[in-house]
Design a protein around this nucleic acid. Structure first.
Lengths: 335, 335
DNA sequence: GGCCGCTCTGAAAACGGTAACAGCTGCTTT
DNA sequence: AAAGCAGCTGTTACCGTTTTCAGAGCGGCC
């Protein structure tokens, strides 16, 4: 079933079919309904390849993501997919496995004639590579940028600094004064922001950050465990730990329980992300929720404007986080 | 950068460029390297749209999946994506949100001119709709079929019956005799198979299944909780529960702990899927691992043969499961 | 009555590749 | 010596759309 077949059956030209299908230009109501009848009856759908070749728009959006599986990413992708579906666009999914080369070569190929734009989630590209991409005329947005990038690239992220401050204010209000931070890799902008929020909250409470209490490690359970062990070995133990993601918090909680520290009586723990794991833990984890699906949706909404209007004033959106209080935090014990 | 630009720069015809890029036909080494130099230098990539239009192959594979987020699906998708990447194909991701109409209309549009084939994960289509799809010449494989479908459609699933038997043999070997089953929706083929494995294991141990001990519910935490409550209210409580997925097991464990039943001393629990949650629970959950990523990979491997050879003898693949024993199972208490 | 503008429609030229076909060279075979 | 064939390359038709352009019909206005 090609457009020509439909045209022949309806007794009109292919141009008219195209106009009917795309709701563009003038078509008399009579012709329109006749064509629509033929289309319905024979189940015609336009070939995306042909359309892409002819009009330059493929209806496909590339989505790069380090990995699909960690729920952090899959929830964002779900939000992106949802929003794109509403625009009748499809998503070309590209897991990069954190490999810079893979991502670059993928994008290079997608830019040209495959997709109309891209949503880059935590991309590996350097700021200059992203700038090149932009000057080549590729429309894209970045969700959760790894580093500070060209101001003209639209970005969407969570309010990381504010979220960290929320977590800290909760702990401070409970009476904690020695609050440790287990940060993820400091190269990530999100972590820099969270650190900023951590320090800001301490300062606001009139406390000076103790460098001993900040520990950087990999963003995984293992990293959390290592950091927690080190913190517990300090002469003066912290009474609370703010972990920069839930994985780290899980690791910390494991070590705490292994050392017979009761949570939250002896140690309060706050995570970040509020992944589904956090309410599974016992005690359930207090965590800063990022609006991940929303971030995906918002990215698409920016991208659509970019794709349609061609170019758009710089936009950097930060979506508010929310502190979800569960059983892992409480007032510090009497010591 | 079009193929014509490259041809002009290299001083050859477009046909030669095409041959170099696709490694087809004869090209002298000298010409080849000259062309490759131009391509590298100017960063040419063929337009997928044009290629798709001309050759009929787009290098895109549609992947339908009910939802992205539950890790059950995202792990399968990750396996699919990984395998497709190796074939230099991209994945067009279509979350159907369990909506039959959405899935049907998506596929209808993808079949024609957009993708070369499809991987359908737990599809909503009826067997007859799938048959139609096949007779229309669309190449696809089904992963984890919902029901028994046309024997000519290649399918990949886990060895559900055998997996259930593994779980049961473990419980039986520990000495359990009253073993309840919390099944998911019995419409799903996977659940029928697991029920078959459950009954087979009981029979092999010389026990007759007690209908009181089988409880069907929705595949979620809530469903597990409801089922477990009912089971605990029986005159003679089961000493072990085999839940047909981990969500159900989590629900059951919650209710057990709420009723002050100790796991595993008073009650053993086995799950199915071995999702990442299972080792987070306290006690950690004994569960039947499905090789999800492998299933995705295997699906692609079948599909590739289908796409290349056109048509393929019926293949139904069952991948072996593995029982992962953790802390939630132990010998029954003395009562 | 001539002109304008609006509505509607069709012819035809792209869009960027692929692949069938033909043509050329130089070597091997008969 | 003619024929055949492998290796290499170019010409060109075609894939299924969109879009530009031109033209036809028609009512309203000066």
């Amino acid at each position: 079933m090609t457009i020509r077949d439909v045209a022949a059956l309806a007794g009109v030209s292919t141009a008219t079919i195209s106009r009917v299908v795309n709701r563009s230009g003038y078509v008399s109501p009579k012709t329109r309904s006749a064509v629509e009848a033929v289309i319905r009856q024979h189940g015609y759908t336009a070939s995306r390849s042909a359309r892409g070749l002819s009009s330059g728009r493929t209806g496909l959006i590339a989505v790069t993501v380090p990995r699909i599986h960690p729920s952090y990413f899959s929830v964002i992708v779900a939000g992106v997919a949802d929003a794109l579906y509403e625009h009748d666009m499809r998503i070309v999914l590209c897991p990069t496995l954190h490999e810079h080369d893979r991502e670059v070569s993928l994008l290079a190929r997608l830019v040209h004639g495959t997709t109309d734009g891209g949503v880059l989630i935590l991309p590996e590209e350097s700021p200059s590579e992203l700038r090149d991409l932009m000057t080549h005329g590729f429309s894209f947005v970045v969700i959760d940028p790894r580093t500070r990038i060209d101001a003209r690239v639209p970005t969407v992220s969570a309010a990381n600094a504010a979220g960290a401050t929320q977590a800290m204010e909760h702990l401070l209000a409970l009476g904690h004064r020695r609050i440790a931070a287990i940060t993820g890799p400091s190269a990530l902008m999100a972590n820099k922001e969270r650190t900023r929020g951590y320090n800001a909250a301490l300062a606001a409470a009139g406390l000076t950050p103790d460098p001993e209490l900040t520990f950087e490690s990999e963003f995984d359970v293992q990293g959390g465990a290592i950091a927690a062990s080190a913190l517990f070995d300090l002469a003066e133990r912290p009474t609370a730990i703010f972990a920069f993601n839930d994985q780290l918090a899980i690791g910390a909680m494991r070590v705490a329980l292994a050392r017979n520290l009761r949570v939250p009586e002896d140690l309060s723990i706050v995570g970040f992300d509020d992944t589904s794991e956090s309410e599974l833990l016992r005690p359930a984890l207090t965590s800063v929720r990022q609006p991940l699906a929303e971030m995906g949706r918002m990215g698409v909404s920016l991208l659509m404007r970019l794709v349609e209007n061609r170019r758009l004033e710089a936009v950097h959106i930060e979506l508010a986080t929310e502190l979800v209080i569960r059983g892992s935090t409480g007032p510090p014990g009497p010591r």
